[in-house]
Write a protein that binds this DNA or RNA. Structure first.
Length: 275
DNA sequence: AAGTTGCGCAACCGCGATGCA
DNA sequence: ATGCATCGCGGTTGCGCAACT
């Protein structure tokens, strides 16, 4: 069957989003949700295709996003997960709350890839480059914690994961783990004794932990935002048991509309200012 | 100061997966 | 079973900025 274009190319705007467009999209999603992305632009009064709206929302406007550079721990987690999952960025991103697949993919291509190459690690296979000469070429690389972790983290290469199709796209963490040999798992636990490895295992084996971490990271980012613009932030909500819980979607998002009036740079979080 | 180059990021594109009539 | 619409993913592109010459 012939594939229809995702949207009518005529009259559809492309390129960077303006603050006005962002505002419209946020407004619409806050009040209506996104029942059908294809309908969103029309209903929201945007001259964009639904795909573009979805991308803008998931990669930039979503209120639970954690902006800024990846931390060391997050970077290590990405490396470990990449060793297990390959280029399945959305799967990797799902294990890093507040991070998007696009963000992780970009970070991988621009930072981590180079870092690994510098260390003499093939970023695709996570194996040492030029195995035979590796000790001479990179005498110190295997002493670094990240490399130790990386090499110990998996027995199967990303290609294995991707090419053999043993792991379905929606494979669970258990499936991923079971695809590794018992030896590899044992090696993993013994060779990578650091915290990120433990965290990785926890994340891969326990969705509750992931949820918990999500909350913790949300609190962290909340505090980060608090330090710059406390009055604009979603506040923690206390439930009837006097427990802090995540705010509702609306609570969480309402401040975002205000943010649009200032522009992201006003919060000191403009990514471009990091450089 | 002006021009060039390289880098990092946001956004786009194409395709496979999925759901529904 | 088939066709169509939509979603979601991964790869790629293009723009803006900073560093360099």
């Amino acid at each position: 069957m012939g594939r229809q274009p995702c949207c009518d190319k005529l009259g559809v705007k492309k390129g960077p989003w303006t603050a006005e467009e962002d505002k419209k999209l946020i407004n619409f999603i806050l009040t209506n949700g996104h029942c059908c992305w294809r309908a969103v632009p029309k209903l929201a009064g945007l001259r964009r295709c639904g795909k573009s709206c979805r991308l803008r929302w998931t990669n930039y406007l979503r209120p639970d996003l954690k902006r800024g550079l990846l931390t060391e721990a997050e970077e290590q987690l990405v490396i470990d997960l990449h060793a297990r999952l390959g280029n399945r960025w959305s799967k990797i991103a799902s294990r890093l709350p507040g991070r998007t697949d696009n963000e992780i993919k970009n970070h991988w291509n621009t930072h981590i890839k180079k870092k690994l190459l510098k260390m003499g690690i093939d970023p695709v296979t996570h194996e040492p480059l030029h195995k035979d000469h590796d000790d001479h070429d990179h005498p110190d690389h295997d002493q670094s914690p990240s490399n130790k972790n990386m090499l110990g983290s998996t027995a199967s290469t990303p290609q294995d994961a991707k090419n053999t199709s043993n792991i379905p796209n929606n494979s669970s963490s258990e499936e991923i783990n079971s695809s590794s040999s018992p030896e590899a798992v044992a090696e993993n636990s013994s060779a990578s004794g650091d915290e990120s490895a433990l965290l990785l295992d926890s994340l891969c084996n326990d969705d509750d932990m992931s949820t918990l971490m999500n909350y913790n990271l949300w609190v962290d980012s909340n505090e980060l935002w608090n330090s710059s613009r406390g009055d604009q932030l979603p506040q923690k909500v206390v439930n009837s048991d006097n427990m802090e819980i995540l705010p509702s979607f609306e609570d969480n998002c309402s401040w975002l509309l205000d943010c649009q009036d200032f522009g992201i740079q006003d919060f000191g979080l403009d990514f471009r200012s990091r450089r």
